[in-house]
Nucleic acid binder design. Structure first.
Lengths: 112, 112
DNA sequence: CCAACCTGTCAGCATTATCTGACAGGGGGG
DNA sequence: CCCCCCTGTCAGATAATGCTGACAGGTTGG
């Protein structure tokens, strides 16, 4: 679901999710194929709970999809797939998204 | 200079710079035309030193250009212009940028 | 001299984000 | 039983950000 014009909040969520070296690396790793938490932790050499947290942030931003696959025997593995996203960052796309940012009281008044 | 393939660090810098509601709003405001610190602070209703800091971050990421214009009489105003940027965010572009991230020791080893 | 406009910089506080080790619980198998 | 694999969650330490009021210094104009 590569949206044309994301809402301000969605845009912000995606940006915040990607603004981290760890999470960028996670995305890059998943671009080569699905994986699961423990394997990824070994591969990227990072603490598992830490990776877990980062994956949750990516998932919250809908950049990644995690599915807990419980085998017939009962053992479970949580697979993570990269969501196919694509967004363009330009002054125009940002200006278009900003008005829909939900925050307290902010208004435009004078210019110049 | 809308780069085709930004380095990992550049990408990260831009993402980090934009991952803030304030800074998104600043970019949107500047998209309507140049302005200077005090005027922008009034317009966006935010603390001037705070805005100043955000502008510096945007400038560091090269999303914004500030020029201190000292009039012939000596009074000075620092104008900020939006830099014409454009970058596309997809799993591919990210995967392409990640290998050039400069951080301590990280390597890829096994997969799956 | 005082007021109003501008820029730039600080110390210090408040709030988030990041990161770690440890734990609980679920599955196999030897 | 013990050992190894997996998931998920916590408290708590540490580091990074965000934010504020106040100050110094420059100019113009009444």
């Amino acid at each position: 679901m590569s949206r044309e014009t994301p809402s301000g909040d969605e845009l912000l969520a995606v940006l915040a999710a990607l603004a981290s070296p760890h999470r960028l690396r996670i995305v890059a790793a998943l671009a080569e194929g699905r994986s699961y938490v423990s394997a990824l932790a070994r591969r990227l050499r990072m603490n598992r709970p830490l990776l877990y947290m980062h994956l949750q942030k990516l998932e919250a931003a809908e950049l990644v999809v995690g599915t807990l696959e419980t085998a017939p025997d009962g053992s479970s593995v949580k697979w993570f797939d990269l969501a196919p996203f694509a967004l363009t960052l330009t002054p125009q796309t940002i200006a278009a998204a900003v008005p829909t940012l939900t925050v307290p009281g902010q208004k435009d008044e004078d210019s110049q």
